[in-house]
């Protein structure tokens, strides 16, 4: 982390040499909205170890509030949630000016074609079925999305 901050400082001090650092995204804030405690913890730990700043929310309401208060760089969103479902939260995120450009990666155990199509139509950047990917693979996908965002 220190090394990264140092690199960032160097870039800031040298405007001619300014170019986005390819590891810049590693300090990014990730918001996880996931109701299953075990999955949430496993994923938080994995992403924290990778260097991300992780916040987690148990349901959509809490997640949305947290996102509005402190806009994350990427939101990991489950679809089947207590209370308001993930689709509605996604819709609200995309309508909120402050959050509309934040990439939302759907991480759900739904995943039939119609679910995927619906989420993508609502503005999700990608759709991953939890059972088909490991936390490592999810982390890789987050990195590639953020890389695109920063470049």
């Amino acid at each position: 982390m220190l090394l990264l901050n140092y690199k960032k400082l160097l870039i800031m001090n040298d405007p001619i040499e300014f170019r986005p650092n390819e590891n810049e995204f590693l300090k990014s804030k990730i918001l996880i909205i996931e109701d299953d405690k075990f999955l949430r913890d496993l994923l938080s730990q994995k992403l924290s170890r990778e260097g991300f700043k992780v916040t987690a929310a148990v349901d959509g309401e809490e997640g949305f509030k947290s996102a509005v208060e402190d806009a994350p760089d990427l939101i990991l969103l489950d679809l089947v949630l207590p209370g308001i479902d993930g689709f509605s939260i996604l819709e609200r995120i995309k309508k909120e000016a402050k959050l509309s450009s934040v990439p939302v990666l759907i991480l759900s155990n739904l995943g039939q074609k119609e679910d995927v199509d619906r989420a993508l139509a609502l503005g999700a950047v990608d759709f991953m079925i939890k059972a088909n990917f490991t936390p490592g693979e999810i982390s890789e996908r987050i990195k590639s999305i953020l890389k695109k965002k920063y470049l």
């Binding site: 299953d36 075990f38 999955l39 496993l42 994923l43 994995k46 170890r49 089947v80 155990n109 739904l110 079925i129 939890k130 059972a131 490991t134 936390p135 490592g136």
Partner: peptide, 22 residues
């Protein structure tokens, strides 16, 4: 099937963390 997927994901993720020596 959807209900089964959540615990299956948990098992998969936990085993993977064990396997990767994390």
């Amino acid at each position: 099937a959807h209900q089964l997927r959540t615990p299956l994901s948990a098992i998969k993720w936990a085993l993977k963390i064990l396997l990767d020596g994390e």
